[in-house]
């Protein structure tokens, strides 16, 4: 039968028109979808121009999270070269060779409003708390696939490579301390107040007032994380370009929204797969009938049992 392709498309079309309508409507709602900001969103404001690079926050973070200091570098100092399975918070130095302005930068989880790590996590081990907005890791659900280490645009979650019970480590804003009414470890020891903790709205207004007070002090007069990557709860002010500090320019759309748009649309309510499945079944039924007929004929010809 030579009308196969037409048949297929016709049957898809028949079942597909209502589905297509649903998808279009759904797509429109997706486009208008904005990223919700949690009701009690808390975060950090780090002003790189005030930071003196004392690294008290690095030591305090390890202590607050009951993690042994990472001395794997020289077996003497707590000197992680980057975030890792023992380090949730690190101070790095950007020092250009031409002697122009240098800056320290504190790197920890950005607690994005639409986190790519949570978007990619298969069983929602990394999930965003709906009230505080803190992105937490649940050891009961994690399968150790390390997809979060790949999807996070800031390269924050780190996997524990040694041992048979590995965990994923990243800053969780010291939630146990917050519950007791304490500040996170890093902000409680910062001697200059370079990093401060508070509700996101308060931090944003503080950042903007600093920019207004000293225009020209901060790079592009903007707060990184206000809109970047769809908005984050860890905000940055800096004298030098954010990219030089390792904070990529991602644009106002969050990574999941930008990259998974079609994936989300095509699988919306599983409509398209279901439609395809039904039409495939129809087509194959017809095919199968023809195939079985031929097989039986062949069986009669050869005297050997048909191989279906």
């Amino acid at each position: 039968m030579a009308i196969t392709r037409r048949e297929l498309f016709v049957s898809i079309g028949k079942a597909g028109i209502p589905a297509a309508v649903a998808l279009t409507v759904g797509a429109e709602t997706l486009q208008a979808e904005t990223i919700p900001i949690p009701s009690a969103a808390v975060g950090l404001l780090y002003d790189a121009s005030i930071c003196i690079g004392c690294k008290a926050c690095v030591a305090a973070c390890a202590e607050a999270n009951d993690t042994p200091p990472d001395t794997r570098g020289d077996q003497l100092h707590q000197a992680p070269s980057d975030l890792n399975d023992l380090t949730r918070n690190v101070i790095k130095l950007y020092k250009p060779e031409d002697g122009s302005a240098f800056s320290y930068v504190k790197r920890q989880c950005m607690h994005c409003l639409d986190p790519a790590c949570a978007a990619g996590c298969p069983f929602q081990a990394l999930h965003k708390d709906p009230e505080s907005g803190i992105v937490k890791w649940d050891s009961d659900k994690c399968i150790g696939c390390r997809y979060c280490t790949i999807t996070c645009p800031y390269h924050v979650p780190r996997f524990q490579w040694m041992g048979f019970n590995p965990r994923v480590t990243k800053c969780e804003l010291c939630s146990p301390r917050l519950e007791k009414g304490l500040q996170p470890g890093c902000t409680s020891v910062c001697p200059t107040g370079a990093v401060i903790f508070g509700p996101r709205t308060v931090l944003l207004s503080e950042a903007h007032s600093r920019i207004k007070k000293e225009p020209g002090r901060y790079y592009q007069g903007r707060v990184y994380g206000e809109k970047d990557n769809g908005g984050t709860q860890s905000l940055y002010l800096s004298r030098v370009a954010f990219e030089k500090l390792g904070l990529p320019e991602l644009g106002p759309e969050s990574v999941p929204a930008r990259t998974l748009r079609w994936q989300r649309r095509l699988y919306q309510y599983f409509a398209l797969p279901a439609v395809l499945y039904v039409s495939l079944v129809q087509v194959i039924r017809k095919s199968l009938k023809g195939h079985e007929q031929e097989a039986h004929e062949h069986e009669k010809e050869t005297g050997l049992r048909a191989q279906l």
Partner: peptide
């Protein structure tokens, strides 16, 4: 997979994150 013992969540469809390609 680093923590394969948690694969059993595959049996509970409501725990799947269907936005995740993985």
């Amino acid at each position: 997979a680093g923590r394969p013992w948690n694969f059993y969540w595959i049996v509970f469809p409501w725990k799947w994150n269907m936005h995740s390609p993985l």
